[in-house]
C-alpha cells in the first residue's frame, strides 16, 4: 500500500507484527510500519469486527489502535517505533484477564 523513499541516514531495524518480522526505520510511527506490512490493518473493531487501518495519522480517529509491547489500545500513530517492538493486532473486544 505504501513504500519507503530512500533515506540512508536512517537506521533500519526489525519489529514484529503478530510475530512476523517487519523492517522499520528510526523516527517513524508504528502506524506507518503497519501501512507497509500486509494486510495493512491495525485491528478488527470491537463493535462489528470489521478490519481497520490507520486513517488520520494525527491522533484524532483512533482507528490505528493496537497492542504495543503488551500495552493495549495504543494510538500507534503517536508512538515511535523501537527496535524489537512487538505489535499485535487486536480482533474484536479486548478480553481482560484478572
Amino acid at each position: 500500500m505504501f513504500k519507503q523513499l530512500a533515506d540512508p541516514a536512517r537506521r533500519s531495524f526489525s519489529v514484529f507484527i503478530d510475530g512476523a518480522e517487519v523492517s522499520a526505520r528510526d523516527g517513524e510511527t508504528v502506524a506507518a510500519v503497519i501501512l507497509r506490512a500486509p494486510p495493512h490493518i491495525a485491528r478488527h473493531t470491537p463493535v462489528k469486527e470489521t478490519p481497520r487501518a490507520p486513517f488520520c495519522l494525527m491522533g484524532v480517529c483512533f482507528d490505528c489502535l493496537a497492542t504495543v509491547d503488551g500495552e493495549t489500545s495504543v494510538q500507534t500513530c503517536l508512538v515511535e517505533v523501537q527496535p524489537g517492538m512487538k505489535i499485535e493486532r487486536p480482533v474484536g473486544k479486548l478480553r481482560i484477564t484478572l
Partner: peptide, 15 residues
C-alpha cells in the same frame, strides 16, 4: 493529511 504526515515523518508514499 495522513498521507502527507507519512511523507514528512516516515519518508513514505503510496506504492
Amino acid at each position: 493529511g495522513a498521507a502527507q504526515i507519512l511523507m514528512k515523518g516516515s519518508g513514505q508514499i503510496p506504492e
